[in-house]
Amino acid sequence: MIERLLEPENRQTLRYPMALLGGVALLTSMAIGIADRLTHADIAQRQLDDLQATLQQVVPARYYDNELVRDTVTVDDAGRPVVVYRARRNGQVQAVCYQVSAPGYGNTAMRIILGVDRAGALLGVRVVSHSETPGLGDKVEASRSDWILKFTGRSLNDPQPASWGVKKDGGVFDQFTGATITPRAVVKAVKGGLEFFAAHRAKLLDESAALPTPERDEVGKGAKS
């Protein structure tokens, strides 16, 4: 059969290149399909591990005994779905963790992950991905500078809302030498993330299931306005 395929007169027909291209397309798609079946579970597991590692950076281990990556709730934030991971201990939500995005220098989005405790204070902030200028804007990475760690412990009223900005804008957070846009965007996004928490507090903390704490709820709402 192979000899017949190789005969010159068979190859000069229009059918031959069509069959060749079709055959190669079929074989390669089959190979990719099989490879997908083989690697799908492993890749999903790796992505879950990555996510877990990221979440652990912003929510200390003492806050939860559940499987953080699987306890999620999707909240609609002005038409944009936000996936929130909930850290529970003894069934009660102790902290939540979600992602916000900020337009960086050159309008490429930075993805920022926040960990927030029940009272609305930040447990940790990390920039997960960005395309800021190396050496200038990339100081938002925890591995390059401790700037991002200064958010820990802050909440909507600490500092006062007017001071939630970089020093250049009259706020309390440092900007970087030669880069103001990036830290300004991060500060604004973190503040936005805290406002999101205040607006959806009851839903994020799964209050219907756990002990209702009405007074603290009022505090949370008061912080928003």
Binding site: L20, L21, V24, T28, I32, T39, I43, R46
Partner: peptide, 24 residues
């Protein structure tokens, strides 16, 4: 049709490499 065939083969090989490295 050699160029489309090459492109198809190379693109699939890269996809396979991408999946394998991601998984393992």
């Amino acid at each position: 049709v050699r160029i489309p065939v090459y492109v198809l083969l190379i693109a699939s090989l890269v996809t396979l490499a991408d999946m394998a490295i991601n998984a393992w």
